[in-house]
Amino acid sequence: MSKNTNINSTEKQEIQEIKDELIITDSSLVLIVLHDKKKLILEQLLEKDMTIQDLRQTLGLNPGTIKRHLDDLKLNNLVFESRIEKNDYNITMKYYRAVARSFKINIQIPQL
């Protein structure tokens, strides 16, 4: 278990613990995790935090599309904003990270 410690004290931040594994038992989350683009984004964010621009360069997707998928993933507590940094030109950079290092799907039918 680790905590992200690279946080700018001046920014409003949420400190979130990154789990080693997250078992998804909620069927509504399965569709989200298995969505092609969301899965691609989530895979990138498993081991490191990335900005939308990093994801754009890696995945070649439109940043607007990435943002919408990230918002969806964030809404469902699958990713979070890990830190906010400023580069040498003071451009604010928001980093995203998956809430766990791996995701497992465990759906039982009928659900208990």
């Binding site: 900005t51 939308i52 754009r56 940043p63 607007g64 943002k67 003071n90 451009i91 604010t92 950079m93």
Partner: peptide, 10 residues
């Protein structure tokens, strides 16, 4: 682009 953290505009 420069201040919101998202680094892009639509």
């Amino acid at each position: 682009i420069m201040s919101s953290g998202e680094m892009f505009a639509e």
